[in-house]
Amino acid sequence: MQQSDPRGEAPEMESQNEPLIRFDDVVKRFGDNVVLDGLNVDVNAGERVTLIGPSGSGKTTILRLLMTLEYVNGGTIWVGGEPFSHMYKGGRLVPASEKYLRARRKTIGMVFQQFNLFPNMSVLQNVTEGPVHSLGISKDEASERAVELLEMVGLQDKINAHPTQLSGGQQQRVAIARALAMRPEILLLDEVTSALDPELVAGVLDVLREIARETDITMLCVTHEMGFARDVSDRVFMFDAGRIAESGPPEQIFGDPQEDRTKSFLKAVLEQS
């Protein structure tokens, strides 16, 4: 393939430590509201990245762009060294077609703030639906794997239950199992504990800690749980107004923040809890 490289570096040199995810000058607008304003972010394979910052700062939009629930208005997203928001056509980058996206996004899974389980399916069906219908895995194999995953999230006794019979925390753990059933390389977690009653938060975070410990899945978490962010993150991005105000290892961001914006945000969050 004829790749044009705007940085003018040889692709061979880059491939050694090429980031798994690259946001290249990404712009996202909703009407007149500029949510992401020329964002550049690299995330390496296996990295656990936490996105923090005030509401409306663009954190969730990054996850939604990666899940192809939104489309960029400018710039390009790259995944695994290949264009993701765009595709090559006649040697040029054009917006990705639905067919192209279907081939690419199967390496990405997402867990939503509101769980979004399918109410017309049992817990087990929720977890097998993706693997059976979009990965083409046999029903038996998908069920076997789903049971394993539901055991991992502590819901082996709820396999045949209906989503409405579960607590919010249980629903969210099913949603995590459902995302993992697709064997994603990248897991996107969008404020997964924000809709939960306080006493249910710990159970969900424990499951996520276990995933971080046991797998090498690249994780991008938008969260307001600063303790969790500190525990699992390799890097923390502090967002403000569509830009990264500060980024670094959690010890630095939480222990010794450099930017005033980060300091005031963390102060406000810590006072709240």
Partner: peptide
């Protein structure tokens, strides 16, 4: 709309999303 988004996150095609979810 969140139901459609959850189905897209499982990489389901339009037909699967519509008929199954």
């Amino acid at each position: 709309r969140a139901q459609t988004e959850a189905a897209i996150a499982l990489n389901m095609s339009w037909w699967r999303r519509t008929s199954r979810v």
